[in-house]
Design a protein around this nucleic acid. Structure first.
Lengths: 215, 215
DNA sequence: TTTGAAAAATGAACAATGTTCATTTTCTTT
DNA sequence: AAAGAAAATGAACATTGTTCATTTTTCAAA
């Protein structure tokens, strides 16, 4: 009986360690991938680069991720955690309208400081293709983030703002506004359009947005 | 003297025909490319596909376009012509505010009906990379299209709308709104977010936008 | 400690892609 | 008809994501 437990214990602990090691290597792959993505761009980063960076072979990467889309999806999830963490700070802002305005600012700042991460979250098709591959019905990260926005807008409406508006379409409009600004900038559609102040166009436009929703 | 003219004439005419034939083949490549892009998607279309479609070899394609980005840029330009043509109809709308609202509708309809073309115009990096390759300082198509918007907004302001707003940032905000809606939809960020009416979210959000700018 | 099977890691090999360029074919001029 | 110029060709290259037969490592059982 004692021996059985001992063996069982040892077996379990080894299995646990192995599972932990698997998670660690998975995390290592993701860490190296993210570093390379930020350093040289997502499209310029190859599986070979990632394998080299962690001193493992190409094949090993494929043991831990079924394909490149899986890596992109995993990183996309990490990025949502990061942005979600920044949003969480805003729960301290009690006035929903102030919180909504602050959220937009945080969103834009995140996008401008992390264009590749933003691309991964909202522009690239690959992470969504991965969801198709595994036949996922929901996009959890997107749903959760949109829910944060929708809830805030809901509170704004309750507080008497946005009279005559409908919650979901209005929330989507607000998301679209800030996303549009970031996306056009990141995807290089503001360069070469001969703007008077190309460097500040996003924050200037955000000021116009603030005026608009305050009416 | 006569002989000189005759020779000269013949030379010119041949050169002209050759130039015309070159243009024709170039147009043929673009036509086939666009067809394939719409049929099977831009990323799924290869140079070999294009060469096969027009019964020429791979190498020939490279005589007429320096690289794939050049093809994407040329098509992107065609798409801007198409959208520009649709905008031109709106010049009949005298009231600038009505025109602005109609422009957004046309813009969104174009995006929803031609997602690949829209991608080419506003999402993909390749056409802009081509501008970098040839060291272009301006993005003519974008500049011209933005100018149409800015001019309309300018007229709106003159007519007493958008009090307290600044022209360029406001124009960029409006562009961002409609672009954001289209981009999120085309890049599959509305699927899986558990919206109540995912199929009509873009047009529903546009209604909210109309309410917002009318205040 | 030895052993053998399971797990993990490997990297050569494959298919697909954009691109190049020496060669061939076609056209134009003399 | 011949020579030179222009156009077209497609084999070949480099780089990608991906696979999988083989090798190496791990670890419980003897």
């Amino acid at each position: 009986m004692f021996i059985f437990f001992a063996l069982q214990y040892k077996t379990m602990s080894t299995a646990e360690r192995k599972a932990r090691e698997k998670e660690e290597l998975k995390a290592l792959i993701l860490k190296a991938s993210m570093k390379l993505f930020v350093e040289k761009g997502i499209s310029q980063t190859t599986i070979r680069n990632i394998a080299d960076a962690i001193d493992y072979s190409i094949g090993t990467v494929y043991i831990y991720f079924r394909d490149k889309n899986a890596i992109l999806y995993a990183l996309h999830t990490e990025c949502f955690s990061e942005l979600g963490g920044q949003f969480r700070v805003l729960y301290n802002v009690k006035d929903p309208m102030e919180r909504l305005k602050a959220m937009g600012k945080v969103y834009i700042q995140f996008a401008m400081e992390n264009p590749d991460k933003y691309d991964l979250m909202f522009n690239l098709k690959e992470p969504m293709e991965f969801l198709n591959e595994i036949q996922a019905k929901e996009w959890d990260e997107g749903a959760a983030t949109f829910d944060v926005l929708r809830t805030t807008v809901q509170e704004c409406i309750k507080a008497g703002h946005f009279k005559g508006h409908n919650l979901e379409p209005l929330s989507y409009l607000i998301w679209s506004c800030v996303h549009g600004m970031c996306s056009l900038e990141i995807r290089a559609r503001t360069k070469g359009v001969l703007l008077k102040n190309p460097d500040t166009i996003v924050s200037d436009a955000y000021s116009e947005y603030l005026k608009l929703i305050d009416k």
